[in-house]
């Protein structure tokens, strides 16, 4: 007769993904490809910001884009049309986030052998993507003015994870009741190391500061 026994596991449900993500970061380092995981709510301006940013970065780096947001076929097309860089879509099969395994398959299909910098446009959502480490070299996010200044209070995890927080659509700040100082204070309370830049992806305002941020970030990553 078979006996029933208990095996104690005591392991986080995310443990295997975290291991895969760490391996992926090492793999990227070995290949000299810097992967940026970009998160935001739907419509905060991920695609518009990437387009503006890539047009200023592409003379210095060989860039690729992986689109995982819901209307990703549209976004992938629009990115490659408006920037000329290589872009693919990743099928999330209805998942609300990407994990390290899906990210790795995306990298295999975009082929990073000739890329210095890859942007991953994650699924538009402030909760789920923050829970899963994609294996990216850095995490960044966009918060847009119409979403309100209380988002860092409501969704602290994504703000804690991101090295860079862009506050987008500042061209529209007069139409919304958005307290910039309060918002920045809350972000820094959750993540004292965050760099916060106010931008307008539409007018191009302060995108040059984001460009400088990436130059510095890539230099220190390469020297590391």
């Amino acid at each position: 007769m078979k006996e029933i026994k208990t095996i104690v596991v005591n392991r986080s449900a995310y443990a295997d993904n975290d291991e895969e993500a760490n391996l992926l970061r090492e793999y990227l380092k070995d290949h000299g490809t810097f992967l940026v995981n970009l998160m935001s709510s739907p419509g905060a301006g991920k695609t518009t910001t990437l387009t503006a940013l890539i047009n200023l970065l592409k003379k210095d780096y060989r860039i690729g884009v992986m689109e995982a947001d819901i209307d990703s076929d549209v976004d992938a097309l629009s990115i490659s049309k408006n920037t000329g860089v290589k872009s693919i879509q990743i099928h999330t099969s209805g998942m609300c986030h990407l994990d390290a395994g899906m990210t790795k398959s995306g990298l295999d299909s975009i082929d990073i052998s000739d890329l210095d910098l890859v942007f991953l446009e994650n699924v538009g959502n402030l909760v789920c993507p923050a829970e899963f480490d994609t294996g990216a070299s850095m995490d960044m996010m966009i918060l847009s003015i119409p979403e309100g200044d209380d988002k860092p209070l409501k969704y602290p995890l994504v703000f804690e994870k991101c090295d860079l927080v862009l506050i987008n659509k500042i061209d529209a700040i007069d139409y919304f009741d958005f307290d910039m100082e309060k918002c920045k204070k809350t972000i820094l309370m959750r993540n004292p190391n965050a760099t916060i830049i106010e931008i307008s992806a539409k007018t191009g305002k302060n995108i040059n500061q984001v460009v400088n941020y990436f130059h510095k970030k890539l230099n220190s990553w390469r020297a590391d």
């Binding site: 078979k2 006996e3 029933i4 026994k5 208990t6 095996i7 104690v8 596991v9 005591n10 392991r11 986080s12 449900a13 995310y14 995890l157």
Partner: peptide, 12 residues
């Protein structure tokens, strides 16, 4: 309160 933790399994 944030974690999802696998405690144990009963197997035969």
């Amino acid at each position: 309160g944030r974690d999802v933790y696998i405690k144990d399994v009963k197997v035969d």
